[in-house]
Design a protein around this nucleic acid. Structure first.
Lengths: 347, 347
DNA sequence: GAACTCCGTGGGACCGCTCCCACGCGGCTT
DNA sequence: AAGCCGCGTGGGAGCGGTCCCACGGAGTTC
């Protein structure tokens, strides 16, 4: 069953152009263009004729030709650092991507997925993206010292971030209420009668991790609970990091009876470590995670966790970016979306 | 802090064109084009002058202008049915995407992520993709009765699939050795002394699910173990489907002492159901999953599972597609990559 | 020394669209 | 009846590249 090759004699059937449509419909190119772009300045007769011709020829506009003159590409890039891609398996990225995709699809925009594999590639990214390739850029997992967003901004490329780099982020961004989420998580632990609550943080060069830590502290302060330095250990959002941090906490404060981890993956490491140390969860030590990831549901015991509205975050990012593309400045806002505590058996 | 708007008086600084480079370098447009495209027919003097000018102006070629004449876009689409996107959280998609991305990046190709949200959108996809938007298409989670690949093929758009629709797939495709993986999984169960091995299948309108079922049967046959109809229950790759199938199996064969599930997610449902029925894993019933997903590691007990080389599968898909783009017919091959059994505590 | 290569080169002609200007033609005013 | 308005409309002029043809000059060959 040989594939449909195009024999040398048969010049490859070229797709119909706008010109062909115009000829078939008996109108000028301008009129066809107006119909396609939904201009009101077309008579019903012409419009009908053109639509008929388009259907007949199966005409699809050539986006390259169009963007050459409009200087728009109708596509945006989503930049994902590859180092973070193991997190891909977390619902975080997939949730954001779904939302972004849905938000863009509504506006007829396309999504270019740009995975950055190393530093060098990352450095080349600004010029690359500047070359009139995309109308805007979405970035996830941005670190506080990341300057790419500023470079893009300087190149007048609309940019929206998932999360912010600091509390004075000049660019448009969308984030979950990390602080509030951490607060309810810790408050939940205290309400359950826990007194000595530790925390495993994320990498503190990420604002989200700092915010979660702040929320943890705030909740303890509000409750007048102990707030000691050895109750906090740094992790890096990985399972192994969570285990190490848990070891550290147990060593420093053997009397600890609850842990708030800034991610489910770290929480799962903590649970393993607790068990290895002979502590029962939740009887001896209660554990709360963050993300409400697939891991949270399947771990033993199922993990109480803070859920972020990922789909909506993605959609909101898309909307901000579209706003910014349509009208510079309109998307330079920070949007915070609420988190929710999902209670399971670990507390 | 008002954004950098462009005041009416200031014409937006337009990016330098090839013409500008030519003027600065004191050569013709043709020569600049040759340098950019690495043609050997350029003197060292000219080349140096052009490179200097490019660096000075920060010139980046306009891809739209280029693709208008070359009829290439240097980008490929990855089509992902949104219905499957919860699977996104599985390593499957992220692994494939990573591999694809890496494989494409090496060739300077870009990746367009196309999520299909509903049937209607799916129907519009062929004409959409035909409009000279991408040089090729990658598809995942293809069902046996899916005709989109054929439509793309008819439109002469290079297409490569993850998995095949049947054993006579005409298009290029890459898949794991599902059958072999299932065989080693079941053989492992039998080697552990299990006698009555059931299987929870995936949706049988997917070839991968059928192959895994075949592998299961083959292994039993080879071992002369019982091969009864009530030992097989259909799932749909979801946890709930796995639970339901497990209930069915327990009802039909209460004496069952092992289960092979065609995915980890279904296996996790099966484990929950077994526990609910008072069976211990692995003491009473051993369980093996497929995918070696994050769930497998974190479930209690950690799940023995069959691992696919996802990264390599993605890279291979990229390579096949690039081959097909470069030379029609060259990518119309089926590639099978080996699977591996990862043994944990559930067996 | 004339003819013939060959190599590097400049620039015209597109690719398929949008933008915009000018034009024809009915319906109104005066 | 002459003038004016304004609505569709056709089509020229690009957008920024690539392709290819023709051309000048240096290096052969006879």
């Amino acid at each position: 069953m040989s594939p449909a090759e195009h024999p040398p004699g048969t010049p490859e059937a070229r797709r119909p152009t706008l010109n062909a449509v115009a000829a078939l419909a008996g109108v000028g190119r301008g009129t066809v263009s107006r119909v396609i772009n939904g201009s009101p300045k077309v008579s019903d007769r012409s419009r009908a004729a053109v639509e008929q011709a388009i259907a007949e020829l199966g005409y699809v506009p050539n986006p390259a030709a169009r963007s050459l003159v409009t200087r728009r590409t109708d596509s945006v890039a989503l930049v994902v650092p590859d180092a973070q891609t193991r997190l891909f398996s977390e619902p975080y990225f997939s949730g954001i991507i779904r939302g972004v995709s849905a938000g863009l699809a509504d506006a007829g925009m396309r999504l270019l997925l740009v995975m950055v594999h190393d530093e060098k590639e990352y450095a080349r990214l600004a010029p690359y993206l500047s070359g009139q390739r995309v109308d805007g850029v979405l970035m996830v997992a941005v670190h506080s010292d990341d300057t790419l967003p500023d470079q893009l901004d300087a190149l007048a490329i609309p940019t929206v971030l998932a999360g912010r780099r600091s509390d004075r982020e000049p660019l448009g961004h969308v984030r979950a209420d990390n602080r509030g989420g951490a607060e309810i998580a810790v408050r939940h632990l205290l309400a359950g009668g826990r007194r000595t609550v530790g925390s495993i943080t994320g990498p503190l060069d990420m604002e989200a991790a700092r915010e979660r830590l702040d929320g943890y502290r705030q909740a303890l302060r509000d409750a007048g609970a102990p707030l000691a330095e050895e109750l906090v250990a740094n992790g890096d959002f990985t399972e192994e990091g969570g285990r190490a941090a848990m070891r550290e906490l147990l060593c420093g404060r053997p009397d600890l009876d609850a842990v708030f981890a800034a991610s489910d993956v770290m929480a799962s490491g903590a649970v393993l470590e607790l068990r290895a140390a002979g502590r029962r969860v939740p009887e001896d030590v209660a554990v709360v995670g963050f993300d409400d990831s697939i891991v949270a549901r399947h771990i033993d015991p199922p993990l109480t966790s803070v859920r972020q509205p990922l789909d909506e975050m993605g959609r909101t990012m898309a909307r901000l970016l579209l706003d910014e593309i349509a009208d510079r400045g309109a998307g330079r806002r920070g949007v915070v979306l609420p988190t929710r505590l999902v209670v399971r058996d670990s507390t």
